[in-house]
Lab assay of single mutants.
Amino acid sequence: GEEMDTAEIARQVKEQLIKHNIGQRIFGHYVLGLSQGSVSEILARPKPWNKLTVRGKEPFHKMKQFLSDEQNILALRSIQGR
């Protein structure tokens, strides 16, 4: 696969979550399948791509996919709003 700019992906995700008022817990649960603790760690201190294991890269693939389609963001927003 291609190398990803993990810091940039994390920054964009944080931006979207704040902009749409989506909590990290909801994002972690529905998008990444991770706990809030793992999510906040990944978003606060993303490791460089070449330092990640295959498993460590997974959340970034999912985040990139999440960012690529605004429908994903809107869907999360409606879950959050319940």
Rank of each mutant, 00 (worst) to 15 (best):
G1D: 14
G1T: 12
E2V: 08
E2D: 08
E2I: 06
E3R: 08
M4Y: 07
M4L: 13
M4A: 04
D5L: 01
D5G: 04
T6H: 02
A7S: 10
A7M: 09
E8K: 09
E8M: 08
E8L: 10
I9C: 04
I9E: 03
A10Q: 01
A10L: 01
R11S: 09
R11Y: 06
R11K: 15
V13M: 06
V13C: 06
V13P: 03
K14T: 04
K14G: 06
K14C: 06
E15R: 07
Q16A: 15
L17Y: 01
I18V: 13
H20T: 03
H20C: 04
H20P: 02
N21I: 00
N21L: 01
N21F: 03
I22K: 00
I22A: 01
I22R: 00
G23Q: 14
G23V: 07
Q24A: 09
Q24K: 11
R25G: 15
R25C: 12
I26R: 04
I26C: 11
F27Q: 02
F27P: 01
F27W: 03
F27M: 01
G28N: 06
G28H: 04
G28K: 02
H29R: 11
H29C: 09
Y30V: 11
Y30Q: 10
V31I: 11
L32Q: 01
L32C: 06
L32S: 01
L32F: 00
G33V: 01
G33A: 05
G33Y: 00
G33K: 07
G33H: 09
L34K: 05
L34F: 08
S35G: 12
S35M: 06
Q36T: 12
Q36I: 11
Q36R: 11
G37T: 15
G37I: 08
S38A: 15
S38N: 12
S38V: 15
S38G: 11
V39W: 05
V39N: 02
V39Q: 02
S40D: 15
E41W: 03
E41Q: 07
E41L: 05
E41R: 01
E41Y: 04
I42K: 02
I42T: 05
L43M: 06
L43I: 03
L43Q: 01
A44K: 10
R45I: 05
R45D: 12
R45S: 14
P46C: 04
K47A: 09
P48I: 04
N50C: 15
N50H: 10
N50D: 09
N50K: 10
N50Q: 11
K51H: 10
L52P: 00
L52N: 00
L52Q: 01
T53H: 04
V54Q: 15
V54W: 08
V54A: 15
V54D: 14
R55A: 15
G56V: 05
G56F: 07
K57R: 13
E58R: 06
E58G: 05
E58F: 04
E58N: 06
E58L: 09
P59V: 15
H61M: 13
K62N: 03
K62D: 01
K62C: 04
K62P: 00
M63A: 02
M63K: 00
F66T: 00
F66K: 01
L67G: 01
S68C: 08
S68E: 13
D69T: 07
D69V: 05
D69E: 08
D69N: 12
E70G: 09
E70S: 10
Q71K: 14
Q71L: 07
N72D: 07
N72G: 11
N72S: 12
N72P: 04
I73F: 12
I73V: 14
I73N: 04
A75E: 15
A75Y: 12
L76Y: 00
S78T: 13
S78E: 15
S78Y: 07
I79T: 08
Q80H: 10
Q80E: 13
G81P: 09
G81S: 12
